[in-house]
Design a protein around this nucleic acid. Structure first.
Lengths: 227, 227
DNA sequence: GCAAAAGTGTTATTGGTACACCCATGG
DNA sequence: CCATGGGTGTACCAATAACACTTTTGC
């Protein structure tokens, strides 16, 4: 018998908000199986598009969102992961900044929403497992590459970065030591501006210097933030 | 038009020999396209088998080999990577010990051989690229997990481990410091036996204590051999 | 006895960790 | 004036890096 395996892509898109912590973008399914269940955005790959194109297309169609970082996560291929057909899914994970985090309303009829990774609903297929793998990967990635900057506003107070690391790595970290370490790398610039949010002293804004970061990286620098 | 994408697996199997360095297992293709060209072992996934089963089956059929470590590498899905059909390939990389490294002769008619990663022949499809990705991954993996032991004999002289790291990370390392670091982790046991190979003083044999390793790992130990 | 590989300790420097008080603002 | 979050420096300890000579064997 000839091969009858379908290929799909699924995307685990992470957003971050200092109040809410890390969230994942979910949609409700329009069709059986798992109709009306929450699921990862994704769908079948078209014959002439690349996997990345497929992910970006689905994200646009289903959630009206553009990610600014996208990386392949893992390919899930157990024969029974879809109850109807054999479908292997190439999963990606993406990161979006807070401003894209506000979903544009004009997407399809289906529901789209952010869910904190601490309070996920029941998910279709093996999507819970895929999300778990993505979270682990993001944690690992964060520990040796400053991808966190893709989740923050272009200009942000230092405490946002700190909170991001704390919420994702889920353990305390020393404010002074953390700042010392990050600033020592030299890819983070302190700006003249400040902002104030709620109570307390206004906070200086910082921005990530990508150019400097890539220079350091070229020179074989290791960013091991094994915090 | 309905989807007509095929799913295959390809395997980058690494072997190691202290004399030869790190090698990759290649086969010659029986059919067009790229007939008689060197290529990675692999082939189409069957409808009812998992991706891992497919890799292991192909390795058995095409090269008569069993790997003792297998991990998914990346999924390659560019529309034009196969000149005839659209085929996405889920690539795996595997490690074998020297004794499996000797290929059993009774495989199919096609050629099977090891090639040093320093002297690879021209490869079919995008297999050169896949091998490059696998090498990078192995280097990275080696730096934070002792997978190297899967490449060495059960009992081995310390210098084999040292040579493995040197050849793969391609820079000098201090014998004393390296040994100090590895032995400090506590998952490597010194045996009473020695062997002698060629000239020079006989070398003590060592063996990897997997149980101890997993204990340490459970306790959140980090093996960062950023050498 | 010489060539070849194995084995072994000490010191200096660096980076990591622990730790507590003052500052600027809004209400 | 007080509550809230922002900002900062030092001292100790642990890990890393640099470094060269001796031992055991085969030939």
């Amino acid at each position: 018998m000839t091969q009858s395996i379908k290929t799909s892509v699924d995307a685990v898109v992470f957003g971050y908000d200092p109040e809410e912590g890390v969230s994942v973008l979910l949609i409700t399914r329009k069709y059986e199986p798992f109709r009306k269940s929450w699921a990862l955005p994704g769908g079948l790959v078209k014959n002439d598009e690349s996997l990345e194109q497929a992910v970006n297309r689905e994200l646009k169609e289903e959630a009206g969102i553009d990610v600014n970082y996208l990386e392949q996560l893992y390919t899930f291929g157990k024969p029974d992961r879809d109850p109807r057909n054999r479908v292997i899914s190439v999963a990606y994970y993406g990161l979006v900044r807070p401003k894209d985090y506000q979903l544009s309303a004009d997407t399809d009829a289906e529901d789209v929403a952010w869910f904190s990774i601490k309070k996920l609903p029941k998910l279709a297929f093996d999507h819970k497992h895929i999300v778990d793998v993505a979270i682990k990967r993001l944690q690992g990635k964060l520990a040796y590459e400053p991808v966190g900057f893709e989740l923050l506003e272009k200009k942000f107070p230092f405490s946002d970065l700190e909170k991001l690391y704390q919420s994702l790595l889920s353990h305390e970290l020393d404010r002074r030591n953390f700042k010392k370490k990050i600033m020592n790398y030299g890819f983070l610039e302190e700006l003249e501006e400040s902002i104030q949010r709620g109570a307390g002293r206004p906070a200086r804004l910082y921005q990530f210097n990508k150019k400097k970061y890539f220079e350091l990286k070229e020179n074989g620098y290791n960013f091991d933030l094994f915090i």
